[in-house]
Design a protein around this nucleic acid. Structure first.
Lengths: 164, 164
DNA sequence: TCCAGATGTTCTGCTACGCAGACTATCTTG
DNA sequence: CAAGATAGTCTGCGTAGCAGAACATCTGGA
């Protein structure tokens, strides 16, 4: 097929359709996290890196600052994260996960490993890994986050990233 | 990396981030079509297959029926598609593209070919093609559209699809 | 033939969400 | 110390999706 014909071959359609499947399928596994997939991503970002500021978090997750405020209100209310004043910049808050947040993330990672395979049920293991790597690589390059390049450097297993 | 650590390795994050990049990048190219990417997808679906009913269209594009009604109002108002009564079922409407719609789609396809490469700028040509194929394959399997299997059969170039 | 249930389309109302803008506190630069 | 930039929060607006009802029509069975 030189010129893709059906809607199914459109990049926008494929992205949207897979996104919908992902959200629908993971809804159950992420039900108890405030904010759903976003709450999960916040926890992930807080636990595996230097405690990020709210703004850095918002940029990386593609959210508005005001939305991040409300999202963190919920997560903090649920006792999963804490806002700590940055000792070097009293305007900023460093977001760190509580032990409860770490425990929940651990549990969620286990569930998601299974559920995400369901999302990619049409692909064999090698294809799943290939899709993950390609998606990450393409997504990181387009992410407006200020520290995307720093993070990218850590993902050496995904192959070399250009530019940046 | 046995256990993905950074947010950038999360499937949900990568999908969302790439989706945002796609929408931002293609916004200009799709500005003149009512509904943006959705309008484009409607045109694509109408022109390359049997004229679909509104409901079939909505399911394939992942939209609510009521949203499809408004979207088609706009497209019809712009003279790009027509609603024709289905001769076999007077409840249903068959959506067909006008000649203006076909001309616009032709133009849009040309623009998108360029712009979509910008979205995937971090990938080399072989990787881009691989990502497209994997995305389509994964997305089609999760699409709740009733005739997804029929469509899937036409995409023989993307490799065999399981189950269905 | 007639009836009950299912299906396609449209309309109404509700809710949620993101965004723009203003505001405060703080940092940085000169 | 002054001026501009940045982090976080709050308010209000416009939009978008979804549930539910309403209406027309199809299908299958009595």
């Amino acid at each position: 097929m030189t010129t893709p014909a059906a809607v199914e071959a459109d990049l926008g359609w494929a992205l949207g359709a897979l996104m919908r499947t992902y959200l629908r399928t993971t809804a159950g596994a992420l039900a108890e996290v405030p904010g759903g997939p976003r709450g999960y991503q916040v926890l992930t970002a807080c636990l595996h890196e230097e405690p990020p500021t709210q703004l850095a978090l918002a940029r990386r997750l593609g959210l508005d600052r005001t939305v991040m405020t409300h999202l963190l209100d919920e997560l903090e209310g649920a006792g999963l994260v804490e806002r700590r004043p940055d000792p070097a910049d009293r305007r900023a808050r460093r977001i760190i996960a509580t032990s409860a947040g770490a425990a929940l993330l651990d549990e969620l990672d286990g569930r998601l490993a299974t559920v995400e395979d369901t999302v990619l049920t049409a692909l064999d293991p090698a294809e799943r890994e290939a899709l993950r790597v390609l998606l990450s690589k393409a997504a990181i390059a387009g992410c407006p986050s200020a520290d995307a390049c720093t993070v990218a450097r850590e993902m050496q297993d995904a192959g070399q990233l250009d530019g940046c």
